[in-house]
Design a protein around this nucleic acid. Sequence first.
DNA 1: CAATGTGAAGTACTTCACAGCC
DNA 2: GGCTGTGAAGTACTTCACATTG
Lengths: 217, 217
Amino acid sequence: MSETYEPKSKHIPQATIKRLSTYLQVLKNLDRDKVEVVSSNPLAEACGVQGSQVRKDLAYFGEFGIRGVGYQVKSLMQSITSSLGIDHEWPMLLIGVGNLGRAMINHVSRHASAFSIKAIFDCDPFKIGDSVYGYEVLSPSEIPQCVEKMHIDIGIITSRPERAQTACDHLVHAGITAILNFAPVRLKVPDSVRVEYVDFFRNLYSLVFNLSQGGKS
Amino acid sequence: MSETYEPKSKHIPQATIKRLSTYLQVLKNLDRDKVEVVSSNPLAEACGVQGSQVRKDLAYFGEFGIRGVGYQVKSLMQSITSSLGIDHEWPMLLIGVGNLGRAMINHVSRHASAFSIKAIFDCDPFKIGDSVYGYEVLSPSEIPQCVEKMHIDIGIITSRPERAQTACDHLVHAGITAILNFAPVRLKVPDSVRVEYVDFFRNLYSLVFNLSQGGKS
DNA sequence: CAATGTGAAGTACTTCACAGCC
DNA sequence: GGCTGTGAAGTACTTCACATTG
């Protein structure tokens, strides 16, 4: 019942972190539907995992449930949000203002209260100065001062694959330490920089492989 | 050296399938740079995994390497493509023609030779009839005949979260058996239907959690 | 008595280490 | 000599089963 939630144990599996995102998604919908309490099994089922998995995942961060009852939806959302560190705003910048970039700008502003894109950049000189969703497209040369002024840690790369490494180098040079990369390219970065890759084809390949295997040929 | 590549062992880890996508990505770039042979260690490093991991992953599908030498880049690409089942075209349909939908239409046509979006749909009556990148936006009521006529197995959902379950129901009803869902919602589907979720926030949460933990506070 | 929190058991995946081959 | 392919060893994650608690 304290205000802060410190991890109880040293190591928390990455798999757990990724699942918390799903729990939060489902909890938001339960909350919208005015559900006040949920127990691990129904929550787990909605998320496509086992009840014991949910309980173990949550237990890494604290004791959020009530035995014999379940979890308070609202307070569990708050606990997860706090555990993930998304209970305050994370400013971000985006580089690569194509279709995907535009889609991300929209998607983030619509669905993610904790994240906010502060400025957008493009390596293509013809795009610089354009106005996109109220943002002015800036030159990559302005990234360092932007990062410093706004205390930005996270950069999003939505440029074409040919330009992704250049975009990445700009970000790293400016002191960005976390990158979300949508370009279908592996990035070379120093060990101090963490990259998360979003690769739709990975998911498509997985679907196709399982279609081919599952065999209804 | 035969034309078909049958899995040697029964069970192939999903993790392996997901990595093959990365290997393919890196191999494409090596091929573009006229590299003809690569051994497991450099390939692994470019992909952010161990050499032994690459060798084990590939060995699930056959013996593609030459001892003392490495792997032929071109033929390995072919082998992976064939192993994944993406050596022929997979027709798909897309439902939800917003920003994200548009971005996906582009992204798929630009980067994925094996996949092709055959038709696009939207639940919003005001969008039906619009022309987007040369496609006419169709009504969901036309999905079943489209699926049957074009032998489509895969549907992509890029609609708003509120409409995602409806979109999904349309797809399932029409006989779609594999869904790539971009909406931040868990879908209820019969066991026979496989869903892959693309959730950017999952990746962002992971970055943030590791930033918060890694502690440079 | 229903449902959490948690060691202990089980499973899945990764890495090691080296025999086999080019 | 260098690098693959692969059992065996190790690690990370998941599930079980139940004591614990409101």
